[in-house]
Design a protein around this nucleic acid. Sequence first.
DNA 1: AGATATATGTCATTTTCTGACACTTTATTG
DNA 2: CAATAAAGTGTCAGAAAATGACATATATCT
Lengths: 242, 242
Amino acid sequence: MKTLDRIDRLERLESWLKSDEPLVLHDAARELGVSLRTVHRDLEVLRLRGIPVEADRGRGGGVRLPSSWGIGRVRLTRAETLDLLIGLAIGESAHATMQMGHADAIRRKLLASFSHADQRQIGALRRRIRVGPTASGAMVGTLGSTPQQVSDPLKEAFILGRVLTIRYKDGQAAMTSRQVEPHFLLHNPPIWYAVCWDHLRQQNRTFRCDRMQGATVTEQSFTPRPWSAFETDMVGNPTREI
Amino acid sequence: MKTLDRIDRLERLESWLKSDEPLVLHDAARELGVSLRTVHRDLEVLRLRGIPVEADRGRGGGVRLPSSWGIGRVRLTRAETLDLLIGLAIGESAHATMQMGHADAIRRKLLASFSHADQRQIGALRRRIRVGPTASGAMVGTLGSTPQQVSDPLKEAFILGRVLTIRYKDGQAAMTSRQVEPHFLLHNPPIWYAVCWDHLRQQNRTFRCDRMQGATVTEQSFTPRPWSAFETDMVGNPTREI
DNA sequence: AGATATATGTCATTTTCTGACACTTTATTG
DNA sequence: CAATAAAGTGTCAGAAAATGACATATATCT
């Protein structure tokens, strides 16, 4: 019995355990084409791996998992992971009037499932995303949306620490092309800003994402700076990390 | 070498592969305390299981995964799963001004990782949660929050299809105790409503969640009704599924 | 009481895994 | 070009692990 086959068998058992019906081991054995003794051994392996298998003896009995739903292995790109965390954070605050009391547990469980190296990177990214107060009505009135061909490279440059070339249309509709370092992403609902070091002006600058007309990731790297490097520019706009 | 130990070793290898650095197999073998030949075999097992291991020969080479982050096995309770999906949906719409273009991919990947039975249940729950337009300022002005000891039993009754006993304070601060069937959850940002069949009035009734003072799940079941059973009561409030 | 169900121990046999060794291929550097 | 670093594959003897069969124990329901 090759390890591959045994892993398959363990996973089939686990997915059957996830259903609402108690699993009768005699049936499982017949379905898997192994002996009942082997299924018992497999259950022991699952238990040793931390799967909390519960059992009821006697007529109408069987084995099952406590009532919960399991997410199996998922691969998300870096951008997807960023979106997931942002979505959870924003959903949490929008949901706040009906206690989304599980958000911490969800986030903790999801984070715990990443490797330690991934967790460090994700943690570092989270600290560079901030949420502020709702934007004023006048600001909201001029709001456009940020096309995918801008938001994707923006997110990539943000994640990888790369200088971004943007074409930017400012409040007077004047178009400039700049090279910027996106150090922070800032959300004043519903407006998104990139808080950057601007190579053109050699100063901190904050850009509205919906005013970016184009964006390209360059090969040039930058080292993310702490929020304290931008704080004095943001006076009057209290923000917090997500 | 027991299967348990081998599974651990495969998982360690996989988590190393997830890091940004190419993994040199000679180093991995030393770290794992096995031969290089065995590590090659383990890599073949990972490949056979669908992990897309890529390799670079020669100086500076090694093995790695394509750039993505993997979420390992996660167990979420039913309420946590509901919160996750709600959070993603609300986060997506709040995020819309900066294209959260990965939300579909994220949701698809997360859903695909549930067992088929779980997917059916989750899909059925999603169809019973609706989002409408932003609430008027007058409504928002009276908004309180829903305590955990109300929102938890409410969600449980909603998920399991159980009649809920609530203590409800209406707009005139009159307190009633009722038995209700929560068929739909409705979000007019930032207000949450439970769209119910009310046993007291023997009619459809919509209750603001922040006005519920207490909630207890009963043993009595109900069968969820389609939105068409409630639509005529909701005229003027266009909603969509999440 | 009998039937249904989980659970554990033991043993002979079969299967699989492992390390050691040999050899091949590829990429980079001086 | 030669040397080195690195992934990759095949073979074999011995050790380790898995398996089914059998026996026994415990719990629940009719």
